[in-house]
Design a protein around this nucleic acid. Sequence first.
RNA 1: GAUCUCGCUACGGUUGGC
Length: 381
Amino acid sequence: SLAWNTMLTAYAQGGDMLSATILLQKMPHRDLVSSNIIIQAFASNGCLDESTSVFLTMPQKNVITWNTMITVYAQRGDTQKAKILFDRMPQWDILSSNAMIQVLAHAGRITESKIIFESMPETNVATWTCVISANAGVGNLEEMWRLFSLVEQKDIVCWNALVGGLVTAMQTFKAKEALDRMPSWNVVAWNTVMSAYARDGYLTDAKRMFLSMPFRDHLAWCVLLTGYGECGELLNSIQAFNRMPLHDVVSWNVMISVYALNGCLVQAKSIFDRILEHNLSSCTTMMVAFSVNGHVSCAREVFENMPWKDQRSWTALIAVLARNGHMQDAINAFQAMNLEGISPDEITFIAILSGCSHAGKIIGAREHFLLIQSDFGIDPI
RNA sequence: GAUCUCGCUACGGUUGGC
């Protein structure tokens, strides 16, 4: 079955799910590893439901099985499902805990991630890097520094997390100092500081850094595009875009939002139509651009065509409907979101509540306000 | 021996302030 599994892996990695499925049925003995391969393959081809059903019918599972499912949910931003799986796992390895810490931290659930961190029998640099970023994300800078000083083998990624944390905390100068103290650098380090310059409006510094980088990746270009776009320098943004060696989804997405930000809906849409592989960001950006101009049905069409939807895209839809006076549709969308198992967050509720206030429905708003506390455990105040 | 290979940078959601 080793040979069969190797074949299976080959098909799966080539994205040929049809052949993989056929092979699986022909196999004399499917084992744990075969199922793991299939789960992973379905997931990376966007078929999460298939992954889940294989997972549920597996007679035995190992750590790899569980880790695969956790990472899949994590990548989809479904923190809740990831956490449920994590809690059900019979045992954890470093990878599972790290993945979980990172996801929880990303969702702002720092307390839970701390609990996991403190109960880990063994950690590695990645673990520490996760908690460093987590603390930076919620503004615990002293804790971030403390943790950083405790890391024994600081590698580039760990240093980058520190620099990124300082950038998040709006301490651009300290970030630059940390950058200068790093033993070695990579593109991520430079991009991080560059994005801070751009964010703060220091376009000259951003550009200088861009030019002085020994290597550039496509993200460096994207940071520059974004910087120009946010400072209203549409022409520079377009020019930089045209100079890029190649265009990937992110750079297209940046341009959509730059155009939308500067009121050019038509150009935004034409870029959107030229993208071969839309992702969630492209669609959500486009929806919002439509919404600002009141094109509710166009926004809705983009939404319906999305391969899958996450919390942000659902929230965007709800906001689009609420803002344009379609309160009943917004509430329906909210219920549909819950049925899909995607949990709302405080931003979703603000979207609903502000919609109610525009429509003058105090009673409706009150109902949702109460729901926030009882059903979703979010404190509205 | 085959399967997860987890950490850092970029683009998307709500309201309000100057």
